[in-house]
Amino acid sequence: MRGFRWPPPPDGGPRTWGPGPGAPRTGRPALPEPETELVATPHGVRLEQLVTGAGDPVTVFAHGLGNGIATTRPFGSGVAGRKVFFQFRGHGRSEAPPGPWSYLDLARDLRAVADLGNATRAFGASLGAGALCRLLAESPERFDRLVFFLPAALDRPRTPAARSRIADLIEAVESGDASAVADVVSAELPPAVRNTPAGWAYLRQRLDHLLRDGLAAGLAALPDQAPLGDRAQLAAVTAPALVLACAGDDLHPVEVAEQLAAALPRATLHVYDRPGVLWSERADLRERISGFLNG
């Protein structure tokens, strides 16, 4: 049986165990990363951001734990107006003030970037969805439209499986061992993608960012916390919301998405029938997000 291994061959592979094609495999060269900037915030933490597009409306995109600008940019494809992508504290080039941190700290990061960019719409993935919930509990009328992708926690901490995965990722990044980081990150990929050129390209991008920028130790306490004390705090949110989940995703249980959709007065819930929708349902996902935000 062919399995995963790291590092990939220098000619761009992938290579697999056992007999099979062995000729060099080439691919398109990676596009250069766009230039980001560090912005000062009112709460004293400089955050890395990237602004694309032009005009109104303005949408802010909040990423998941251990991810960042590169992994949230695909969600903005097709979204009209200006798009503001940023890195939470402890990610990328954003500063990492002394921890531990809470979802309130993340909500402050999100609010600062949204306010500086005059954003009226917000997208939150996983950890970013939790930070967005925390912000809305304080300011329920802050945004006109909301998208929550794979919410991971609401008024209870994340599952033990999720906490274990995040702890493994932080430990691997701290070790500086590319192979160890690759082993953890590869679990983000559907099995059918893990040993393909697209899968290797994703792994290379993630490893480049994680090993270059690291992950702050202050992030380790977040999986043990819940964004809200009570989901009823979201009852005053008046903006239309789209909640997206995947059946079978142990790190982002459908139950959390269902609870979030029920707590938001004007929410629409869509559940995909399997995980890995960025790979298997990319076009549908893009159309749902852009159609909702552009609507």
Score class of each variant (00 low, 15 high):
Val173Gln: 00
Pro227Asn: 13
Leu242Trp: 05
Ala153Lys: 09
Thr120Leu: 02
Asp144Ala: 15
Leu211Thr: 02
Pro140Lys: 15
Ala161Arg: 12
Ala201Gly: 04
Arg163Gly: 15
Gly130Tyr: 01
Ser186Pro: 01
Tyr202Cys: 00
Pro240Met: 13
Arg134Ser: 12
Gly248Phe: 06
Leu207Met: 10
Arg212Trp: 03
Arg231His: 12
Ser175Thr: 04
Pro157His: 13
Gly214His: 01
Arg212Met: 06
Glu141Gly: 11
Leu127Val: 02
Arg194Ala: 11
Ala221Lys: 02
Ala152Thr: 14
Asp230Arg: 13
Leu136Cys: 06
Gly218Thr: 07
Ala221Glu: 08
Leu211Trp: 02
Arg212Thr: 15
Pro197Ala: 06
Leu203Val: 08
Leu189Arg: 09
Gly199Met: 01
Ser164Ala: 14
Leu127Tyr: 02
Phe123Ile: 07
Gly248Met: 07
Arg212Lys: 13
Gly199His: 00
Pro240Ser: 08
Arg165Met: 14
Leu136Ala: 13
Val254Phe: 07
Gly229Trp: 04
Phe143Val: 05
Leu154Glu: 05
Ala245Ser: 11
Ala172Asn: 07
Leu132Ala: 07
Ala187Arg: 13
Pro191Asn: 12
Asp249Gln: 07
Gly229Ser: 09
Ser179Glu: 15
Pro197Cys: 05
Ala235Thr: 12
Asp168Lys: 15
Phe148Leu: 14
His252Thr: 15
Leu146Arg: 05
Arg111Asp: 14
Asp109Tyr: 03
Gln205Pro: 00
Thr159Met: 14
Val185His: 01
Ala178Leu: 06
Leu150His: 08
Ala232Gln: 09
Ala137Lys: 00
Arg111Glu: 15
Ala137Cys: 01
Asp168Gln: 15
Ala226Arg: 05
Arg231Met: 10
Val184Glu: 08
Ala198Phe: 04
His209Ile: 12
Ala152His: 08
Arg158Gln: 11
Gln225Asn: 03
Leu222Asp: 01
Gln225Val: 02
Leu169Lys: 09
Ala167Gly: 14
Ala216Asn: 09
Pro160Thr: 07
Ala152Cys: 10
Ala182His: 00
Ala167Trp: 03
Pro140Glu: 12
Leu132Arg: 15
Arg204Glu: 05
Thr159Glu: 08
Ala131Ser: 10
Ala201Asp: 08
Gly214Lys: 03
